[in-house]
Design a protein around this nucleic acid. Structure first.
Length: 674
DNA sequence: GAAAGAAGAT
């Protein structure tokens, strides 16, 4: 082994005795890279005390403080510098961006633009564009985009990638697509950004399509690629596609924790808890997101009990739940109507001092409201800061759930007075209250508020408003709002609501014609729309139309007729006395007819005095809902109608025997007077 | 010295 030579020893000694400027600079560089704030401060003090601090060190110090996130020191030194290069400006911008102080980052950018001797470069632009993106200042972003085009960095890959992300984050999907398509050189990051961006903007199908293009064009996918596409698979419940992505993960060895978490979430959302569990059990290291995703999966798949037990295991294994976990567990408690566990958890979050996190507060309000504890719900709400919108929304929907429509409206007025921001969810929670109160004047007021504030351009809000108007009996106003929605925005829900509105008020023809318009506009009817339109036919006695639509549904094969649909048709045929046809239809049903179907038949038999079929229907009804006095009353009415008093009396005795005396007296009196 | 990436409630 060779020891240190004489020359190296003398070099080192020299360095200790007379440290060079470059030595300090490389030390500062090292501190910046390792983010050692204490050492930076120590060296800073040393340089000051020994009188060595000259402007030559300032840039390196600014960089080190900047990297360590020590904003104040960095800014002070930066301001003292007589001359600043682009590199230093970039350090400042980066520091502010890393600290989430995007406004300050933008200010420094303006300083560069105003400075005489330096210009933004390919490092400046991505940072500034990120700041615009985080602030959702798309107009500034566009201006910066313009600046890059007149600079020489307009086609720099990193600059373009950050522009993609910015446009996507600001909802400017078209613009992002334009930039992407025009890029001569694309990296895996460009593809990932665009896939993720499409998904986040509600275009899950496009996200999947572009991911496929990416794989086909031979781009080397990385962990971020799969993490970008998996949420889209989950959202679309594309289990097969998800499995293929999983295959890709195995093949390329991308199985990091974050990827496994995304896989667990995907399988859970696709309804395959077994596969989710396999990935979860296979993980070497699980974090709170892994556990929370599994818990969420059990809840989504209708198994809140497993969610609760997994939550217990999680705590035994020493993982600390966060506000997301708490929100989910409270949801599980609410769905099980398990107030005890909910209160227990409430106690726990108080002890953990996370009870004043807005997400936790909201979930507590929601849980108590769903467990019919309106008082507790309200007392949690009263203790919130009342500045954030979400707890108010939870309280509003809690009022509705507990039959307190008037209080909900009062709460909304208070929200306006206290200057709390209103969002779409507020409107959607609130509007049903006006439908219940069913007074037109307040609805007109809220309508003008929603129009002024622009919320009505949201299709969900418009749908709620249409529903509210039709519940108040003002179809004219309902139609006005419906008509103002552009045809391409009209979705299945808004069509169903307007059809139901006309149907409810006996305008069957209009309902049917709207239904036909909907099909023509390319919106595929679902079971709810069919129910609405068939009920409309039934209310208006449109037999032929109803049968035509029912056959359309059978032929179309997109929706399978459900119990409600059969009930409508039985009702429709029954009303016009086509009782045999109704009975034959019931016999062809592919599943057990419910009490509603038999009830419709019995009702029709009473009107048309058909004892034979009435008895068949009644027999089924007594079996399906033995405690429903209404059915006995109907049968007795039928007997009475045809003069079979003895049988009518027998039905009454049968009711007595079964202890169904609770029947309202007037219905029995009615039997006698028929 | 730079770009993208997972869970929840209204």
């Amino acid at each position: 082994m060779n020891g240190p030579t004489k020359t190296t020893i003398s070099k080192t000694t020299k360095l200790f005795l007379t440290p060079k400027i470059s030595h300090y600079q490389s030390l500062l560089k090292h501190y910046a890279a390792t983010r050692s704030l204490t050492r930076t401060k120590q060296l800073h003090a040393h340089l000051t005390n020994s009188g060595l601090l000259s402007t030559r060190f300032l840039p390196a110090l600014v960089a080190a403080y900047g990297q360590c996130g020590c904003v104040l020191n960095a800014r002070k030194l930066f301001d003292e510098l007589p001359q600043r290069g682009t590199v230093l400006y970039n350090y400042m911008i980066k520091m502010y961006v890393n600290n989430g102080n995007y406004f300050e980052a933008m200010k420094v950018f303006v300083e560069i633009l105003q400075s005489k001797d330096c210009c933004p470069d390919n490092f400046t632009y991505p940072l500034v564009i990120k700041a615009c993106s985080e602030l959702v200042l798309v107009e500034y972003g566009r201006a910066v985009h313009g600046l890059t085009l007149v600079s020489k960095f307009g086609s720099h890959l990193f600059v373009l990638n950050s522009l993609l992300a910015m446009y996507m984050n600001c909802g400017e999907v078209e613009e992002a697509k334009r930039v992407f398509d025009a890029m001569k050189e694309k990296s895996v990051v460009s593809w990932n950004t665009i896939v993720n961006g499409f998904f986040k903007n509600g275009f899950a199908n496009t996200a999947l399509m572009i991911f496929n293009q990416m794989v086909d064009s031979g781009i080397e996918t990385d962990g971020a690629s799969v993490v970008s596409v998996l949420p889209a698979c989950g959202y679309l419940k594309e289990l097969e596609v998800g499995r293929r992505v999983h295959g890709l993960v195995e093949e390329k060895g991308l199985g990091k924790k974050i990827v496994s978490n995304a896989l667990v979430d995907m399988y859970a959302k696709c309804g395959s808890m077994d596969e989710a569990r396999l990935v979860f059990d296979d993980m070497v290291e699980r974090d709170v997101v892994s556990w929370t995703s599994m818990i969420n999966g059990y809840i989504l798949n209708g198994d809140p009990r497993s969610a609760l037990s997994l939550f217990k295991i999680m705590q035994i294994e020493g993982l600390r739940p966060n506000s997301v976990t708490i929100a989910l567990i409270l949801l599980a408690c609410a769905s099980l109507n398990n107030l005890k566990s909910g209160r227990c958890l409430h106690g726990w979050v108080i002890k953990q001092r996370i009870d004043s996190e807005v997400g936790v507060e909201t979930s507590l309000i929601d849980m108590y409201a769903k467990c019919n504890c309106f008082g507790r719900s309200y007392s949690v709400f009263k203790r919130t800061s009342r500045k954030k919108t979400v707890p108010w929304n939870a309280m509003l929907s809690g009022c509705l759930r507990n039959d307190r429509a008037t209080e909900a409206i009062g709460l909304f007025k208070q929200m306006l007075m206290e200057g709390v921001e209103i969002n779409e969810a507020t409107c959607n929670s609130l509007l049903p209250a006006y439908g219940i109160v069913a007074d037109l004047q307040p609805v007109n007021n809220i309508n003008s508020y929603l129009t002024r504030s622009g919320f009505v351009s949201n299709v969900q809000v418009a749908t709620s408003l249409i529903d509210t108007y039709s519940k108040c009996g003002s179809l004219e106003s309902a139609y006005k709002i419906f008509n103002a929605i552009p045809i391409e925005v009209k979705d299945i829900f808004v069509w169903s609501i307007i059809i139901a509105g006309y149907g409810m008020h006996g305008h069957g023809e209009i309902a049917v014609s709207l239904f036909k318009q909907m099909v023509q506009s390319g919106v595929k009817p679902n079971d709810v729309t069919f129910t609405s339109v068939l009920q409309s036919c039934s209310h208006a006695g449109l037999v032929d139309e109803g049968l035509y639509l029912f056959n359309f549904m059978l032929k179309d094969q997109q929706t399978n007729p459900n119990d409600d649909h059969y009930t409508c048709i039985v009702d429709l045929l029954g009303r016009v006395g086509r009782l045999d046809e109704a009975y034959s239809l019931i016999k062809t049903m592919p599943f057990m007819p419910s009490h509603a179907v038999w009830g419709a038949l019995l009702g029709a038999c009473v009107i048309h005095e058909n004892v034979e079929l009435g008895e068949v229907a009644a027999k089924w009804l007594f079996e399906l809902e033995p405690d429903n006095t209404g059915n006995y009353v109907l049968l007795a009415k039928l007997y009475a109608a045809v003069g079979r008093w003895e049988d009518a009396e027998n039905v009454r005795h049968r009711m007595d025997d079964m202890g169904l005396r609770k029947a309202p007296a007037h219905s029995l009196i009615e039997v006698r007077t028929v």
